[in-house]
Design a protein around this nucleic acid. Sequence first.
RNA 1: GCGCUCGUAGCUCAGUGGAUAGAGCGCUGCCCUGCGGAGGCAGAGGUCGGAGGUUCGAAUCCUCCCGAGCGCGCCA
Length: 553
Amino acid sequence: MIREKIVSLVSTALNSAQDAGEIPHFVSPEITIEHPQRIEHGDFSINLPLRIQGLAKMKAIDVANILQKHIEPYSAIEKIEVAHPGFLNFYLEETWVCDQITSIVNAGDYFAFSDIGNGTNVQIEYVSANPTGPIHVGNGRGAAIGSTLANVMDFLGFNVQQEYYVNDAGTQVSIFGRTLYARYAELFGKQIQIPDNGYPGAYIIELAKNIQEQYGDAFLELVDNEPNPELGKIGIDLQLTNIKDDLSAIGVDYDSWFSEQSLMVKGGAYDTSLKLLMDAKLVLKREGAIWFNSSDLGESKDNVLIRSDGQPTYYATDIAYHYDKFLVRKFDRVIDIWGADHQGHVSRVKTALQTVGGDPDSLDVLLYQLVNLRRGDEIVPLSKRAGEIVTLRNVIDEVGADAARFFFLSSSANQTMDFDLELAKSQSDENPVYYVQYAHARISSILVKAEEDSLFKSNPKLSLLNHPSEQLLIRKLLLLPEILENVIADLAPHHLPHYSKDLATAFHSFYTQCRVISEDKELTAARLILLQASQIVLAKTLGLMGISAPRKM
RNA sequence: GCGCUCGUAGCUCAGUGGAUAGAGCGCUGCCCUGCGGAGGCAGAGGUCGGAGGUUCGAAUCCUCCCGAGCGCGCCA
């Protein structure tokens, strides 16, 4: 890539200047390259002279001048300028820029591919909401972030597994079972109190009706004075189906639905990881419960593994779950995506993971801050009447999956987010989703027309694309590879929607300034290739975000 | 009280230690003989919460203070 080429040119120039005795010898820091903010400063900028002025005991501007002299000429570079207080600014050759469109069009859907993942086995686990109820708006944010990250990593050569951890064991599930039983019994005219900490939401009534239709009164009788556990299990399965439907409606598809229950089999991950903790002599019985002495390992406090009623805590099963990810399934790297309310859990999971033999540095926990819903200036409370919440499905139904994903992705994960339903829903120029999609539709429409009129030529003169708006557009297209690398390096998919807006702006601006189909056959053919390249990059960007790229709107 | 995250234009948000801090919406004013106006161009609008510090250079790193959200259960 051109970035690496420039860095290596500068590195060589430094060596050569040092060998010539014009700059003293020292170990150079890593050379960084960036895009200047202002186009007058060129396409790339190197700040090395400023960073080594101390080492060289010279003025940065002098270092820059010497380096400039020692940089070998290179065909893609038109000129190199020294700028105060000591930058080296690189300007790309216009014809080189034009020629890059060919590589985009040739690469097609593989443009921006580079195998930086190198087959690394990565698991991305996200959403994993309790299957005891519908998923809410906050889960939608996790879903958009997780699946987009998975798309990008998959594209860049990682071997990605997307997983949903199904909490089908534990206290919440049994409370769910009792609630469901109460609703189910109601349908047969029995009055049974919903448990105090139960689920008052109306969706449970729907589940109960569904079960009544399929199974009749099969679960009405108590088993050992408790609701039949089979009822709860069926209820969980039905609710899980609803969750799958909702996630699929927002373009999320998992490779794996991992059952918490499966950790609990005799001799399984739960038994093994607990034994490892005990072998480490970090487990003690106290006040009737079994504790992990995590404060001995620098945690702020000890944590309970097994409650005094004999039930394992969420923490204990999560240790087992992470043991399973790393030591049983042997992922090279795991990315967990959690809501920020789980922040306190991160450190102690890593500590426990290390104790059971995993590498905490291979575990990334990406926390996303909470979502506030708004409708214009009005705040929409996330929980409505008792037990009712604003579900992800409500939002998708109102604004559509494309807009929902775009908005969820738009802010960085550690920024609390305001999701404006009114804005997301509006089919107007206020809405950035349509702005980007519109660019794609516009391009498609012109390409169709050009196809009909047979305006394509086999070897168009791309060097004709020298209008400033054309040059700007091509430069934006060429940014995608870097954007994707940044998305992965920072685990920050929010770069994508911003890039897509930028790209759409560059296109719309080009469109109004340069007419594509004109009397000039040569220029028309060249601009059509530019359109093809733009369509490829826009579609790619939208596709990675899980957003459709419509040909008509 | 302790921990994590955040504080950037009226609003919603970008901003890999770099040069004159950006975008969208909103506001003001322009641009349709022609490929899709869901568009384009221009303008107004900022003590980057505050104070110190590190650095050639700080919105960005460090310390303190102020403010907001979240967490600190034998919940998940």
